[in-house]
Computed example of a mutant assay.
Amino acid sequence: MKKTVFLGALTVAGMAAGASAAATLDDVKARGKLNCGVTTGLVGFAAPDANGKWEGFDVDFCRAVAAAVLGDANAVEFVPTTGKTRFTALASGEVDMLARNTTWTLSRDVDLKFDFVGVNYYDGQGFLVSKEMGVSSAKDLDGATVCIQTGTTTELNLADFFRANNISYEPVPIETNAEGQQQYLAGACDTYTTDASGLAATRATFENPQDHVVLPEIISKEPLGPLVRHGDNEWADIVRWTLNALISAEELGITSTNIGELSAAPGDNPEINRLLGTEGNLGEMLGLDADWAKRAIMAGGNYGEVFAKNIGESTPIALARGLNAQWKDGGLIYSPPFR
């Protein structure tokens, strides 16, 4: 089993080396659209609506990158990927970047030859159970059947947690969140485990969400973020600083409603001016024009706006900012300076 996993990693790494030889920015411009790898469907993060239009927290980031690079937030081809297929899709060049619930780990960064450009959501693994079970702690799940997505850090964390607590479980392997939801509701497993944000998103789609509860234990650190292939630093810089632009915009008070005014009449804050391209040449450094960040922010709003409209407390997902609040508000969200 270990040999199979190792060879798979080498195969993905080899593909990454080949795919990164070409300049991704040139490919995206020539194609006229961004190929963005997303989940197969996780409401609030990335899922098609009734008309087939993709929406969500991660979707809005894909659109921000497309706006920055191509000047069109809708110039995106969304490519659904599973926990197993996502890395091959990126390494082979099928997608230009991944923006989905993917945890930044050492082996993915180093062994699989990917670059995580930052963290857009600080998460942790939890457990979803029905209230009927009468379980109040994950430590009470001895002997439980557990729906678990294969090819994920969730799978490894689950084994570690049960082993550390000297309890047993029976895995019920699934490929996608939709399958996990179906199996869980059908009673094929006692509990569904994945990132706590994913559990909240899944529960929000239930007919009776109040009949289910996310247990209090968070058993891991899951820093989720966009990633690109190793070896194309110019493209990595663009994706990284697009994320930073959305984060900095919130900190600096730049919103989708006041950005036009702020860019038309530059004020006394030099960092706002640099970010919006009215001062300095940061866009040129990235191989883009001066308005790249302005377009990225206008695509869906700043980081806080994107969070609030897709997964925030006023949505069915109802996630509090928590660790994903700005650093000045006690969270971990923080951008390096634009200078």
Rank of each mutant, 00 (worst) to 15 (best):
E175V: 14
A296P: 08
G331W: 02
L275H: 00
K33S: 09
E222K: 15
V28T: 02
Q326V: 00
R63H: 10
V135F: 11
R203F: 02
L276P: 14
N101R: 14
A138T: 06
A22H: 12
E155K: 04
G118I: 00
G253P: 07
R229G: 01
G330R: 15
A46D: 15
G56E: 12
A17R: 03
F114R: 06
A50N: 14
D123I: 05
G312M: 12
V59W: 00
R100V: 03
T153P: 04
T145D: 04
D26V: 04
G300L: 04
R31V: 10
D140H: 14
Y169E: 00
G300Q: 14
V213M: 15
D111Q: 12
A22W: 09
W54E: 13
G225K: 03
L42I: 15
K221M: 10
D96N: 14
G283D: 10
K294Q: 10
I148Y: 06
E132I: 13
R240F: 08
G198E: 04
A159Y: 08
E132Y: 14
V76I: 02
D123K: 14
D268N: 11
E313H: 02
H230D: 10
E271V: 06
S20N: 05
D109K: 10
F87M: 09
L227I: 15
D96H: 04
A178L: 09
V5H: 09
T40V: 02
L112T: 09
D49A: 13
P266K: 10
G198C: 05
A293M: 05
T191M: 09
E55W: 00
A73P: 06
Y303S: 14
A293T: 07
V214W: 09
G300M: 06
